[in-house]
Design a protein around this nucleic acid. Structure first.
Lengths: 251, 251
DNA sequence: CGCCCTATCCCCATTTCTGGGGATAGGGCG
DNA sequence: CGCCCTATCCCCAGAAATGGGGATAGGGCG
């Protein structure tokens, strides 16, 4: 009775993932659930160049070694077509749908062919994007020549999403900084418009102040954060939630 | 037998959402599935200022009229605490968890209190973020005094994610060629150090280039994003996941 | 009352960023 | 081969940001 076993699989994985306190714990849980769902491989990864990236980037997988070597030699972490496709949707997709999401180049087709030659056939990828963090995904794949277990794709969607969040937790998601500086309302106004790309003169017009006053507010905000430049001030205020991406981009 | 009815609800909703060709179709499907899951209200929305935003922004909901009027009068689409919290996680969260995700200001607490007074109690929000597009979410809420149906949260996670993607499809997903800008490796290096607060001279020393080359790379990055200032360039690159908070703050 | 904070405005000099122009070299692709 | 992209370097002038100084006014608190 597949219906019943699907939810049993989910509950078991959620329990393991919730208890996981290391990447190894999570890897083991993912290896088991992949098999249970009818997949052969999994890969939970940030879409970065692992040769250049440091410690904070996550990559947990059980892909064949020769595929991984080939992938890394070409530094495909950023440009892999499946990774690129995952930036065009908010829910999971089978790899057969990739050409509907992005325009495939000849190089992309070659990458997919080489994966097939090295044992990775079709798959299902669950995107995970949190603003301010590297984009990522959790993929489940079948060996070359096998079929994706279509009935279990909703379960794979849930599992992939939950696994990525567990990885964020284990590897240290940003924590709320109780000691972060606060800004006055006026300082925050000026920081928000600066982050929108306005000059002091423009902000002065918008808020009905003199240009020097705007300069002063931004200087005082920088001093509270002890940063030398406005670019890092904007980043810090974003990180602390004093301003939000939506607020910045609003028209 | 709740286990059985949960997956029955999911399959029914997926069928309706897949067939939906208008926002009204999707709204009807969401209204039904919300009740079936044990919620009283739903709201699928882009996090924009609806007074100013245009045609591409989606908002489908069945909230009480006086709450909506209050919400819009204060233009909370971009600064609502639940919306802001959804930018700090990749999976859904109950509103009780919002203080773990963002720092609540006195204004935020007032917003949550007023929602409660107008009939909206607790809820569960599923974030949806596609790089290069406005952030959004699909929320399910219970009336003041009622409990969130915890057993159905995995189902709400699936439903919310699927509904948001259906809304994207109905309202015209972007074309294959419309992708967030990309930066060359060198441009990204310079953007990252700029976002860390370094001057061109400093970046030049760090990367072993001339100061003019650094200026050029940053100019070209601004041109790719079509933004006039470095502050907003840093914000955009963060939003799209090209650089991350951990990249910037890492030593 | 004095002190501190916030908001507002002004001045100066220097550094940094922005727009605009020029150039070379190497690699990939049609 | 020509074209485009990437990386690198240079020049100029003007706008914008940064550091540093000055000031007033109003409100809250000990």
């Amino acid at each position: 009775m597949r219906t019943m076993s699907g939810l049993f699989i989910a509950r078991e994985f959620f329990g393991l993932a919730r208890q996981a306190s290391t990447n190894a714990d999570l890897m083991q849980a993912l290896a088991c659930v992949s098999i249970s769902m009818g997949f052969d491989y999994f890969a939970l990864t940030h879409h970065v160049d692992f040769a250049a990236a440091g410690h904070a980037a996550v990559r947990l997988h059980n892909y064949p070694d020769d595929w991984v070597a080939w992938f890394d030699a070409r530094r495909l972490g950023v440009s892999d077509p499946v990774h690129r496709a995952s930036q065009a949707t908010s829910i999971g997709f089978t790899w057969q749908r990739v050409p509907e999401l992005i325009r495939l180049t000849p190089v992309d087709r070659h990458v997919l062919d080489c994966a097939r030659e090295r044992g990775i056939g079709d798959g299902f990828t669950v995107p995970a994007h949190v603003p301010g963090e590297a984009t990522g995904s959790c993929s489940f794949a079948v060996a070359t020549g096998r079929c994706v277990p279509f009935d279990n794709l909703p379960l794979a969607q849930l599992t992939g999403a939950f696994a990525f969040e567990a990885a964020r937790r284990i590897n240290g998601t940003r924590s709320l900084d109780a000691q972060a500086p606060t800004l006055t309302e006026r300082q925050r106004d000026c920081v928000l418009w600066m982050a929108r790309g306005k000059t002091d003169w423009e902000i002065a017009r918008i808020l009905g102040l003199s240009q020097e006053t705007v300069t002063q507010h931004l200087k005082q905000a920088r001093e509270r954060y002890d940063v030398p430049k406005r670019s890092v001030l904007a980043v810090r205020a974003l990180f602390d939630g004093l301003i939000s991406f939506s607020d910045i981009f609003r028209r």
